[in-house]
Design a protein around this nucleic acid. Structure first.
Lengths: 229, 229
DNA sequence: ACAAATTTAGACACTCTTGTCTAATTCGTC
DNA sequence: GACGAATTAGACAAGAGTGTCTAAATTTGT
């Protein structure tokens, strides 16, 4: 609603700070209390801002909510793509590298603050805002899953894995990496580093038992996956 | 508030019918609207009952909510144990039998009405009622997962599978069986029979690639102890 | 058919929340 | 220091929801 002519004077200084702290607090409160249970005064207090300021910035509660979800979706997506870019395309130690990747994915995208908030909001309010969450579905899983699948396909093509359907494998990789965190996620908890590592380790081992190359049949005798030590 | 002396005259007849229809409607509405978003008039209307009757039966909104969760937990647990009892202990066709089991588990326990409601309520209100959901955790995953693990352990002992840690395998089995339903669950949807079969088939195939007996490599074990590499 | 228990509709007081408005104050900038 | 924009506290009306109460209607067991 404020169209400044000069392109670099967009918002003053404290203005943006307030905006951020409102988004921050609103995410926290919506996540904790659900849309209906949250109230604007709570958010204002948590943001250290007056109620009126929130109305000035966002108009009404629903508008604020939508802004939060869009913001979280965007930030989470960025994080996921950043993490995908660290996928081990030329692994030295396939098991260790995939475990490390799974841990990064969980820690930086799934278990972190934004990931937790977005997941909770989707679960809680998904049915009430079909178009908003359809948007998330397209921008989120719709784009990240194929990206991960492509990496696995490349790894298979390079001879590191034996995969028929990379899309299926990608989904199963993620499912396995989280297999032991499900209950914690359900209750809104945040698994600690050890649980994440544990789940990723078990998940990747099983994944490699299923999709790892079995060279014994071919011809090798010494070039087995260098895991231990 | 009504202590009847004779132990079998507990509730009349239509009384119980109302009780059931209240529980039914309340589950639906709490699930759809969240605790804060649900209101008693909505539940009363959906149950075909007057508001006062709900207050007569359950005292207040919170009490009603707790009763719903307890009821759902109990019913879901019963369903899960009933399904576990159909686990293929002496499989004729291991893949087909495990797929069928995974489908039963999903259809009768995870994707059905009660399963969907309980899952949603846990996700949505879990943080607000720690003791109630701790109870669920103990009665639910705390008892069903070991039960499934025991079945897999038996199957491994009988020579059908090659499993080191049955608890891990059981969790991974369930994770794989649901791997392709995650997004749908997130948004509160109910996957159709085809999606369930698809996910179960892919999941079980991968599970068997990882844990199935491979005669050629049965002795080529190359597993090192858990290390945080 | 009768008596007791239950259910019902409606009104009610009370609280909470949203969103608006106003006037005073603070902040950023020149 | 002064100006304009943003923020603030507080009051406010309107609406919605909870939980109670009452008197009438209905159901249930005998």
């Amino acid at each position: 609603m404020k169209l400044n002519v000069s392109p670099d004077t967009i918002p003053p200084r404290g203005h943006e700070a307030k905006r951020v702290s409102i988004m921050d607090a609103a995410g926290k409160v919506f996540c904790r209390e659900s849309f209906a249970g949250a109230n604007i005064d709570m958010i204002a207090a948590e943001a250290g801002v007056s109620r009126q300021t929130i109305y000035n910035h966002h108009g009404d509660k629903e508008n604020l909510f939508v802004a939060i979800v869009r913001d979280l979706t965007e930030r989470c997506n960025a994080g996921i793509f950043a993490t995908i870019s660290t996928f081990p395309d030329q692994p030295k130690d396939l098991e260790a590298d995939l475990i490390a990747f799974a841990v990064r994915m969980n820690r930086n995208c799934v278990c972190n603050r934004d990931g937790k908030f977005l997941r909770k909001l989707i679960q809680t309010e998904g049915e009430r805002y079909p178009e908003l969450f359809a948007e998330w579905r397209e921008q989120g899983p719709g784009r990240t899953w194929p990206a991960i699948a492509a990496r696995f396909a490349r790894l298979a093509h390079a001879g590191f894995l034996d995969i028929e359907d990379p899309d299926v494998a990608a989904r199963q990789f993620l499912a396995l990496a989280n297999a032991e965190l499900q209950t914690t996620f359900m209750l809104g908890g945040t698994p600690d580093d050890d649980e994440v590592l544990q789940s990723a380790t078990h998940g990747v081992r099983t994944f490699l038992r299923a999709f790892g190359k079995r060279q014994q049949v071919a011809d090798a005798q010494k070039h087995s996956p260098p895991t231990g030590a």
